[in-house]
Design a protein around this nucleic acid. Structure first.
Length: 279
DNA sequence: AGTCCTACCTGCTGGC
DNA sequence: TGCCAGCAGGTAGGAC
């Protein structure tokens, strides 16, 4: 489901919902979501309290007392919600639940069961797969255009695939990749190492600006995303190309086309974003 | 090292 | 109406 703006929105919601709550039980009906198994989670977490909710890229870092961190990745469809009463019947797709001593319960829903939770000692999370190789946060403070340029120069594959690689920059997913390439007037199939310096600069700046604006609007809902309060995002109203196949480009009126790049559905304007052979 | 492909799951949509 | 192929905010692992 979510890209960085959606995960950040969930992080903010969760902070207000679970910090301070003490775990009395952990349960699951699909143990594969819990790396290492349910017993590992029960042994480490029962009796502990949530103390903070952090984020790195698209990974949520649920901090607990006892030096425990749950690394939670929502993948395509993962969602959280707090139930005031743990006796409430499980909604469809409920797969993991953390019962609290006050009677409430944090539930994790995931229709495709792609999401994963990994339990680690706090401070060692950056050594786990995914986080060990993650790139800079898409902020002016962390994401340098020099570093971005040198990463692009190492790849001749499609620029879209390179910005989807979380080692290049953390947090860009399929929607924001299409959006930032459209904003930068760069064709998604251009070899990454063929971008001119001004194009690299534009793409870099647009990634920072776009993700920041999407966070401000609570993320993007195009399929089923809702935040931890059950609310949809607002950024879907700001999309320029994603999901607009056949509709006129908002810059030049040319119908938006949809192709496959690196196996992912890709929307672009064939006039504004010149093809590799034409650019 | 870089690139590409498949697997993981299930629901939904569009075409026949 | 029913069936089925193909698609979906993502990543990990393995083969070249």
């Amino acid at each position: 489901m979510p890209e960085l703006p959606e995960v950040e929105t969930v992080r903010r919601n969760l902070s207000g919902l679970i910090i301070g709550k003490q775990i009395s039980q952990v349960g699951t009906d699909w143990e594969k979501i819990l790396n290492g198994g349910l017993q590992l989670f029960r042994d480490a977490l029962i009796g502990q309290r949530f103390i903070a909710v952090d984020r790195r890229g698209k990974y949520l870092l649920l901090r607990l007392s006892g030096d425990n961190t749950i690394i939670s990745h929502l993948r395509m469809e993962g969602k959280y919600a707090l139930m005031e009463d743990h006796d409430e019947p499980h909604a469809r797709f409920t797969h993991v639940w953390f019962t609290f001593t006050d009677g409430s319960e944090l539930r994790y829903f995931d229709s495709r069961k792609f999401g994963r939770m990994t339990l680690v000692q706090t401070g060692t999370e950056m050594q786990t797969a995914g986080l060990a190789t993650i790139g800079p946060e898409p902020t002016a403070a962390d994401f340098s255009v020099t570093d971005f340029a040198s990463k692009l120069a190492r790849h001749k594959k499609a620029i879209k695939s390179v910005i989807l690689d979380q080692a290049t920059v953390a947090g860009v997913g399929n929607i924001y990749a299409d959006e930032t390439l459209w904003m930068s007037k760069i064709h998604p199939e251009r070899p990454a190492n063929s971008l001119q310096p001004e194009e690299v600069q534009a793409l870099h700046d647009n990634i920072i600006a776009e993700l920041s604006q999407a966070i401000d609007l609570g993320g993007t809902t195009v399929h089923s995303y809702v935040n931890a309060l059950g609310k949809e995002g607002g950024f879907q109203n700001k999309l320029n190309v994603y999901g607009r196949t056949g509709e006129p480009c908002l810059r030049c009126g040319t119908p938006i086309e949809k192709i496959k790049v690196g196996g992912r559905g890709t929307h672009f304007c064939p006039h504004c974003q010149l093809a590799p052979s034409e650019g």
